[in-house]
Design a protein around this nucleic acid. Structure first.
Length: 569
DNA sequence: GCCGTTTTCGGCCCGACTGTTTTCAGTCG
């Protein structure tokens, strides 16, 4: 029996119970049991007694045991007999929960999204006690949206909307302080909606100006302290605004940054200290409410170090506090190993890129323009690369504050050969190998291409190892675990491409890379000076995988980096 | 259903908004 199937079965049971109107705490007990299994790194076979896990007791333990032994769950089967299957997808409709759906089923016999739609159109819903014309209208709209609206948007789409809103907010005089919160602040790859916290003494005034300045497509909710709207800057997305008093800003920001699991853990901790956390502050035993000037102070109040938003995910971060000082930060970054210039498809010249890196106080950088195969990107021929190499050496002398290495981002060709011969490669300081073509090849062929690069002693790093675009394409589907094993064997670096489009490798693979002892480089792949800024996103993404400074190549000293790249020579 | 060095019973994170109600249940994050 697969662990994932057990987790999903427990979640399914919770869902069915919700529709049955079971005690909410019982429902959440099943969700917690599923989570306990999921958070445990071990495989099913390695877990001796599941009931030893916190959150799994007799009831949920029996369900798991039955699944392992008999490959079925009597509890689930019984629930499925009582509750029609068609009710499950209805839980995804905003505004409809277990109780309302159960009522619709009981009173009107609605057992699927289709029958629900018909009932709305026939105006049957509004006749039910507890429902009205507005409920009916809202349900109908939700059904239509459900078919068209994407579930989550990738970070590279939301960041434009976030920046737009940030600009609007800073232009409003009555806004004392504001910040994006939610999953975007935690640097999740995708977001369902965008959250903003606004500190102001004049909430009504701010609300009015805000709504006037935004391209609002629809207002979902509009209270005194909470405003929810669908905004269309690039693509429509829901945005929640919370308006709080200036002194409440920090606790509100923490609360709405989440994650939900992180908040639950924090509140439990507060409770154990006889305190109570809410978005408005921390209530002390004597009933007074404490507020804070910064999140650092907030955490310190509970005897905790500052926990970066990027790691506030499943609640386990509170058990890994001793690892926080080792976590890679933007201040640790000493260089960038992947960027382009006007020699290939970059927008800025060699000197412009160097000066931009100097401005960032980097100690080293590598120029890595495309190779000849990528004609659309004006890839360099061996002749042009030789010429550029000489120019980089010459220009480097003018900038004693930074070491500029000469490199290439060389294509691994569809036939598993490399775009430059060893003679050319051996003259360069740093060689990136990457795949930009024939993504559709079967996995064996893709892996053969990668192995060629791995085996070549002149290659230092594999860039964007899966070729994915967040929320858009999966890439070329390599066996990442195998890539990491090869990287370890052949002494190569794997890249964390910091571009919000890529964020490649993804978090679970980065975790694996660190476990296996494979060095990771966080690179911007900048095609212009502004592109260097995505380093920050890359570092936060790395933090989500708990990458330590030591794992990350571009936190190394110049000497250590030099030693690494010269090893093969 | 799960948990517990004050507890084996009585809690389980906490609060806002909506649409329905005439004071609140349901849903959401």
């Amino acid at each position: 029996m697969n662990k994932k199937i057990i987790i999903r079965t427990l979640e399914k049971i919770a869902l069915y119970m919700e529709l049955k109107g079971e005690n909410p705490f019982k429902v959440s007990a099943f969700r917690k049991a599923a989570q306990a299994l999921e958070l445990d790194q071990r495989s099913l076979d390695e877990i001796e007694d599941v009931t030893k896990l916190k959150g799994i007791g007799k009831g949920t333990g029996d369900v798991i045991l039955e699944l392992i032994n008999d490959n079925k769950s009597t509890v689930l089967e019984e629930l499925q007999e009582e509750v029609p299957k068609g009710l499950i997808p209805m839980m995804k409709l905003q505004g409809l929960g277990g109780k309302k759906i159960a009522k619709l089923y009981k009173e009107l016999g609605i057992d699927s999204m289709e029958t629900l739609k018909v009932a709305c159109l026939n105006e049957e819903i509004q006749k039910l006690p507890g429902f009205g014309p507005k409920s009916e209208e809202k349900i109908l709209k939700e059904i239509n949206d459900f078919e068209t609206k994407p579930d989550r948007q990738p970070i590279w789409k939301t960041e434009e909307t976030v920046a737009f809103i940030q600009d609007v907010l800073t232009s409003i005089a009555e806004v004392t302080e504001c910040s994006v919160a939610g999953s975007f602040r935690r640097t999740k790859e995708t977001s369902k909606d965008i959250d903003f916290i606004i500190a102001t003494a004049e909430p009504a005034l701010v609300k009015e100006q805000l709504l006037a300045a935004l391209p609002v497509k629809e207002t979902i909710a509009s209270g005194d302290t909470k405003v929810s709207v669908t905004v269309e800057v690039l693509e429509p997305i829901d945005v929640d605004f919370r308006l709080v008093a200036p002194e409440e800003f920090v606790t509100a920001l923490h609360h709405f940054t989440g994650s939900k699991d992180h908040n639950v853990k924090m509140r439990q901790l507060a409770k154990s200290q006889n305190k109570k956390i809410s978005e408005y502050g921390v209530e002390q035993e004597d009933g007074t409410v404490t507020t804070f000037a910064s999140e650092t102070e907030f955490f310190a109040h509970f005897g905790l170090p500052f926990i970066p938003p990027s790691v506030r995910e499943d609640g386990r971060e509170l058990d890994r506090l001793d690892e926080l000082p080792e976590l890679v930060t933007i201040e640790d970054i000493k260089g960038d190993l992947h960027m382009h210039t006007t020699w290939s498809d970059g927008a800025n010249s060699l000197t412009e890129m160097i000066e931009a890196c100097v401005a960032k106080s980097y100690q080293f950088m590598v120029i890595t323009d495309h190779s000849q195969y990528l004609k659309v990107a004006n890839g360099l021929t061996p002749e042009r690369l030789t010429e550029q190499h000489a120019l980089i050496r010459e220009t480097n002398k003018k900038y004693p504050e930074i070491e500029v290495f000469s490199g290439t981002e060389m294509d691994i060709l569809p036939d598993a050969s490399l775009d430059f011969d060893d003679d050319m490669l051996s003259q360069l300081d740093f060689v990136i190998a990457s795949i930009h073509s024939s993504f559709q090849q079967p996995q064996e062929q893709i892996m053969e291409r990668i192995l060629t690069a791995m085996k070549n002693p002149n290659v230092h790093m594999i860039a964007h190892p899966t070729g994915r675009i967040v929320g858009q394409r999966d890439g070329y589907n390599p066996d990442v675990e195998q890539i990491l094993d090869w990287a370890k064997e052949y002494g190569k670096i794997v890249e964390l491409n910091a571009s919000p489009y890529r964020l490649d490798l993804a978090v679970p693979y980065l975790v694996l890379a660190q476990e296996k002892g494979v060095p990771v480089a966080i690179n911007t792949d900048a095609h212009a000076i502004e592109g260097l800024e995505v380093m920050e996103t890359g570092v936060k993404h790395a933090q989500k995988a708990w990458l330590k400074k030591d794992t990350v190549v571009n936190t190394w000293s110049l000497e250590k980096f030099k030693e690494f790249i010269n090893k093969s020579k």
